[in-house]
Design a protein around this nucleic acid. Structure first.
Lengths: 123, 123
DNA sequence: CAAACACTAAGGCAAGTACCTTATTTTTGT
DNA sequence: ACAAAAATAAGGTACTTGCCTTAGTGTTTG
């Protein structure tokens, strides 16, 4: 019945999935994720391929860190970043679950069509 | 070496993956995707659970449609929406590929540690 | 044909985003 | 102790988003 959602005004991205997908919607941040698959990397090295100012790049890292996709640790004067996988898994799981849902529906639809088509041929 | 990215200013979300993840970063839009797994639904029915004005809801549908996650068709006075799967698959594939990349790295790391640990025990 | 229905267009607003530049802080290396 | 390196803080600008309201445009239905 009336299962209302989002009754009151909320910040733009509030739940973890919102934050994760928002983080992944930027090519710079996706590239960072890709790069970190290889292991830990300090900020300057991570930033090197990108043609943006370091503070701008750091903001991207902050977005990734705040939504739990990466973690970082200061060692001496540089900060090392690494991937955190569970948040990424969460987002992936959402997508896979959705995909399974519509795949399941299409399977049932196909089964139904096969059956009715069969009856059509019989009748 | 200098594989520079994003040299010139670009619109916020330019490639299909940017658009898809951006679209998925909103809970209303994710709920629409979930709902459409069941099949085609007209806008008003789709909008019913949400406590926002219809024009606001329509904007969400537009975002989903413009990035290729849904399609819609006008029949009489209502517009029917349905899922479009390839764009969703694209995004899912990106995530699965990334996951495989770091899973692979962790496997190799584990193999390496096993080997060195083995040598350590032998020596 | 008029009223109701299902959107759609247009315009407005507060908040958020993605960049920037210019300090400032912290940590080496000499 | 001093200069260079690696961030970080602070503040600014242009654009985007997510909502709103009000006013249309077509499409049934009585």
């Amino acid at each position: 019945m009336g299962w209302r959602i989002l009754q009151n005004r909320m910040p733009y991205h509030s739940d973890p999935l919102d934050l994760a997908f928002h983080a992944l919607s930027d090519p710079t941040r996706r590239a960072v994720i890709s790069r970190l698959a290889d292991g830990e990397v300090p900020v300057t090295v991570l930033a090197e391929p990108f043609d943006i100012a370091l503070p701008s790049f750091s903001q991207h890292l902050r977005v990734l860190e705040e939504c739990g996709l990466i973690a970082s640790e200061k060692r001496g004067r540089s900060r090392w970043c690494r991937l955190i996988t569970p948040r990424f898994e969460e987002a992936t799981d959402w997508m896979i679950t959705e995909r399974r849902r519509w795949a399941g529906r299409l399977d049932r639809l196909e089964a139904y069509l096969d059956k009715t088509e069969g009856k059509g041929h019989e009748g």
